[in-house]
Amino acid sequence: MHDLTGFQRDLLYVIAGTDEPSGQDVKTEVGSYYSSDINHGRLYPNLDTLVNKDLVEKGELDRRTNYYEITETGRQQIQERREWEAQYR
């Protein structure tokens, strides 16, 4: 997880905490946290990076809508990150 940007890490956390969110669902949740609109040109390349790193799987709900689901590797990375953070509290 050390090679992810903060934005990518936030996307991963949202996906981990949501049941198969669509890209739009992720966009809405992260946008509310950031208090700004997240454009597609920023969102989808970063989601693809998470897929390419095997942290997230992408599936198809219908012809226009994809969903995202965290992988076991993604869960493990989050757990390792939380353990690392906990030692500095």
Rank of each mutant, 00 (worst) to 15 (best):
L61K: 10
E20P: 08
T73P: 12
N46P: 03
Q76Y: 14
I38W: 04
Q79H: 12
Q77A: 15
G41E: 14
L50V: 00
D54R: 01
D62Q: 04
P45S: 01
V56T: 06
D10Y: 10
G31C: 05
G74R: 07
P45H: 03
L4Q: 07
Y13L: 07
D3S: 15
L4S: 05
D62R: 05
Y13G: 06
E60K: 06
A86H: 10
V30C: 02
E57T: 08
T71W: 12
Y33P: 07
H2M: 13
Q8F: 00
G31A: 09
N46K: 00
A16T: 02
E29R: 10
Q76C: 07
P45D: 05
D25N: 07
R42Y: 13
A86M: 15
Y33L: 13
N39V: 00
A86F: 10
T5D: 15
S36K: 15
T18A: 06
E29T: 14
L55H: 00
G59P: 03
E29S: 11
D3N: 08
Y44R: 07
Q79S: 11
T28G: 07
Q8A: 08
E83P: 09
P45K: 00
V14M: 09
S22T: 09
D25A: 06
D54Q: 00
Y44S: 05
N46L: 04
G41N: 04
L50C: 02
Q76I: 09
S36I: 09
A16E: 13
H2E: 15
L11P: 13
V30G: 08
E69N: 06
D10W: 09
E72P: 11
N39T: 07
Q24E: 12
V14H: 09
T71A: 08
V30D: 11
T28F: 15
G23F: 11
I70E: 11
R89W: 12
R42M: 11
E69K: 06
R89I: 12
H40D: 15
T28Q: 15
A16K: 08
E20K: 00
D10L: 13
D48W: 09
V56D: 02
W84Y: 14
Q76M: 13
L12N: 04
R63Y: 12
L11W: 10
R89D: 12
R42S: 04
Q87V: 00
A86N: 15
G6C: 09
W84H: 12
T28Y: 14
N39A: 06
G31D: 08
A16W: 14
Y68R: 02
R64T: 01
A16I: 04
Y67T: 01
Q24M: 15
N52G: 04
Y68F: 03
E60T: 07
A16F: 01
V14S: 08
G6L: 15
D37H: 14
G6S: 05
K27H: 10
S32A: 12
R9W: 13
E60Q: 13
R64V: 10
L50M: 04
I78M: 08
